[in-house]
């Protein structure tokens, strides 16, 4: 089960929106395989009747009124953007021909 293929690594890289070179695929296949192999030790434990912990504290949904308030201006929102035009973020086209 711990075996992870190069194809899987490429698929995961796509899901993670990372571009990887063949060399990186090679290295990541090795590294992820080793880490996942190591994580297999968790299967020594019987956790059939154990509840998963998502949060250590008793958490309830925190509700608040949905009220509009001033936070940042449009100009501020754009000031760290790598590319902008007419008061908006500019990005390359999504659809390619």
């Amino acid at each position: 089960m711990a075996d992870i293929s190069k194809e899987q690594v490429k698929h995961v890289a796509h899901l993670a929106r990372l571009a990887v070179t063949e060399e990186e695929v090679e290295q990541l296949t090795k590294d992820l395989g080793a880490i996942i192999d190591y994580a297999e030790q968790l299967n020594e434990l019987d956790t059939e009747n154990v509840e998963p912990t998502t949060h250590v504290l008793e958490m309830k949904n925190v509700m608040r009124k949905d009220e509009a308030r001033q936070w940042i201006t449009q100009e501020e929102a754009l000031k760290n953007a790598p590319d902008k035009k007419d008061g908006q973020f500019r990005v390359p086209s999504i659809l390619t021909e």
Partner: peptide, 29 residues
């Protein structure tokens, strides 16, 4: 990158229960 890859793998379809949920259960222990 390595950790993003590991995390994306552990959360991906077919592996979520075996890795992510399992780890959350061990966290309880």
């Amino acid at each position: 990158k390595r950790r993003i890859m590991l995390g994306t793998f552990a959360l991906s379809s077919g592996y979520y229960d075996a890795y992510y949920k399992k780890a959350q259960k061990v966290r309880t222990l």
